[in-house]
């Protein structure tokens, strides 16, 4: 996959601009791995890298939906993804209760949960005209409240053995199922953005919503759809997370909100939307996961990590803001 989600055929100029973030990300991934290896030998071993990729794929799944929402523009952002991950993990865990036979039903319930809350976000943003930032932040609050009510603080739900195996154990050619799932999502996103009318409409409304409207693009329906996609991807991530950790514990999803945005922005999709793609976002997810792992290795706790994430996002905004001005 190349970084040309924007165009079906590669051209040197478009490629040159879009390759930059991807190239930077890949170089940084190498640097961080080397740095990790130097800090703690074995950090960049094959086994360890596989484990990192599994963790990265969970973030990558969440970031896929985030990516669509941001691409569609008009200050599109989904702050509720963390809440949806948590809730869908709990729904899936309770439906399957450790039984392999219940997995299909659990998947259905889990995806339906994500789709529902994503859809509600979309309706709030389009029909009720609530800014995405406010709408999804409010939704996050609702979801957190809901979690407290459902859970009452007691861990509940249990992953089925087959799910746990799929997520973490080698599934095909020695790679765990989650990684394969992520690759499939990567291919799906590339196809969606480059080869479908839906994808082109996402870019169109992200670049000039009014012109898209005047060319007959169903702008509101599109916006509801991208938020629904975001909910669904977060739910799939929640399902994998359940398999990864065995049972669902409180607020498992919270850790994904800011990193999913950073991964998208780092991957070359500006917060203003309209350009970029998912390939870069995948690299961004890997990069962030390695960074997180290094921070854990050097014993920086969760709050410290949050601060570093926040600072990273600000630095990125500064970097890309400057870049645009120079190009213009």
């Amino acid at each position: 996959m190349s970084a040309t989600e924007t165009t079906p055929v590669k051209t040197s100029s478009v490629l040159a601009v879009l390759r930059q973030p991807l190239l930077i990300a890949i170089v940084l991934i190498g640097v961080l791995l080397a740095f990790g290896e130097a800090l703690s030998p074995g950090f960049a071993s094959g086994e360890q890298i596989l484990r990192l990729l599994v963790v990265a794929s969970l973030l990558g799944l969440v970031a896929a939906g985030q990516n669509l929402v941001i691409l569609a523009g008009r200050e599109g952002i989904d702050l509720s993804v963390g809440g949806i991950v948590s809730l869908s993990a709990i729904v899936a865990g309770n439906v399957m209760s450790g039984q392999d036979a219940s997995i299909p039903l659990a998947i259905l319930a889990c995806v339906a949960t994500g789709a529902l809350f994503g859809f509600l976000n979309g309706v709030g943003v389009t029909v009720m005209r609530i800014p995405p930032l406010v709408m999804t932040l409010g939704m996050l609050g609702v979801l957190q409240g809901l979690l407290v009510v459902i859970r009452q603080g007691i861990p509940s739900g249990k992953a089925a053995p087959a799910l746990a195996d799929f997520v973490a154990k080698p599934f095909l050619f020695g790679l765990p199922g989650t990684i394969w799932l992520w690759v499939a999502v990567g291919l799906f996103m590339a196809f969606l953005l480059r080869r479908t009318v839906f994808g082109q409409r996402v870019y169109a409304i992200g670049s000039n919503e009014h012109a898209a409207f005047m060319a007959g693009v169903p702008v509101k329906r599109m916006r509801v759809a991208v938020f629904t996609f975001s909910g669904i991807f977060a739910a799939i991530a929640g399902l994998c997370l359940l398999g990864y950790s065995g049972s669902s514990f409180s607020n498992v999803g919270e850790q994904y909100m800011v990193p999913s945005i950073i991964a998208v922005v780092f991957g070359g999709t500006p917060l203003a939307g309209g350009k970029g793609g998912y390939t870069g976002t995948m690299a961004g997810a890997v990069l962030l996961t390695i960074l997180q792992s290094i921070l854990t290795t050097v014993n920086i706790d969760e709050s410290g990590r949050q601060m570093i994430y926040g600072a990273t996002l600000l630095v990125l905004m500064l970097f890309y803001g400057r870049g645009r001005r120079m190009r213009g």
């Binding site: 165009t7 079906p8 000039n208 012109a211 007959g216 309209g274």
Partner: peptide, 17 residues
């Protein structure tokens, strides 16, 4: 305001209709 989809290729500007 009403016509061009900014920053997107010519192709994507022609095909929506």
């Amino acid at each position: 305001r009403d016509g061009i989809v900014n920053g997107r290729p010519i192709f994507e500007n022609v095909v929506p209709v």
